[in-house]
Simulated scan of single mutants.
Amino acid sequence: MSGLIRLGWAAVSAGDDRRKVAWRLLREVVGNPGIRISNPCPRCGGDHGPVRIEGAAVTASVTYAGGWALVAVVPSHAGAVGVDAEPEDDERRERAGLAGVLGAGSATVRDWVRVEAALKADRRGLRVEPGTVRVTRGRGGGTDASAADMGAWHAHVPGHGGTIAGWDLAGPPGVFVSAAIARD
């Protein structure tokens, strides 16, 4: 199933508009320079909501990590995709720690990117309390035990009635990447 996900990334240099970099990357990964891209927030209308693509039968998600813009794209029939990424090393995050961000106890950066990818695929994002999401390792709903399923996991997101399958993916050096697909 993770073979359905097309992942792309591009460096965002100082002074670059990271959204423009991501939109250009989306057009490249989709293979259609004429697609229309927007990401209105369902609550306030601001430009920080789930990515919408018009002009191609795909769903997409965008994230930023360190100096990178990352995009994930899947065919619409597969469901909604979510992607998240975080630098493996981040001094500010290390000082703050991750204890309590995903409920009681500690969490790892990998735990966080899995949860956020699932929440983005769910399309409600951080309107759902991240600490209520339960991620379980194992094949993310795939039908075979291929090498692509080695980093598979699945998530239970309260209020989402369908399956959210996820995978840890290879991305830019020094960056943890996870993507998820939610089916209704």
Rank of each mutant, 00 (worst) to 15 (best):
R123I: 14
G97T: 09
G138N: 05
R123L: 08
V81L: 08
G141C: 03
G79Q: 04
G103E: 09
V128Y: 01
W153Y: 15
R95C: 07
G105H: 02
A78E: 10
D149N: 05
A145K: 08
V115M: 05
G79K: 02
G67K: 02
D144N: 09
T132L: 14
A65W: 09
E88D: 13
G82V: 02
V83Y: 06
V83L: 15
S106L: 14
A107M: 05
G103K: 01
T59G: 11
G151V: 08
D149H: 12
G100A: 14
R110F: 04
P130K: 00
S146K: 03
G66T: 00
A96T: 02
A152G: 15
M150R: 14
R93L: 15
V73P: 14
V83G: 13
A107Y: 03
P87M: 06
A96Y: 10
A69M: 01
T143D: 14
G105S: 12
W153K: 06
A78C: 05
D111V: 00
G151S: 12
S106P: 13
G141N: 11
V109L: 09
R92H: 06
G142S: 15
G138F: 11
V73M: 13
G151N: 13
V101R: 01
E129R: 03
G67W: 02
R95G: 08
L126W: 00
A152V: 03
A104R: 07
S61A: 13
G138W: 13
V73I: 14
A78N: 12
V58Q: 11
D122H: 12
P87C: 13
E86Q: 15
D84W: 08
R110V: 12
R93F: 12
V81Y: 02
P130E: 01
T136R: 12
V157H: 04
R124M: 01
L119Y: 00
H77C: 07
E86Y: 02
T63P: 13
S146W: 07
R124D: 11
P75T: 03
D90A: 08
V71Y: 11
A96G: 01
E86V: 03
G82P: 04
E116L: 00
D84Y: 04
G125M: 01
A99H: 15
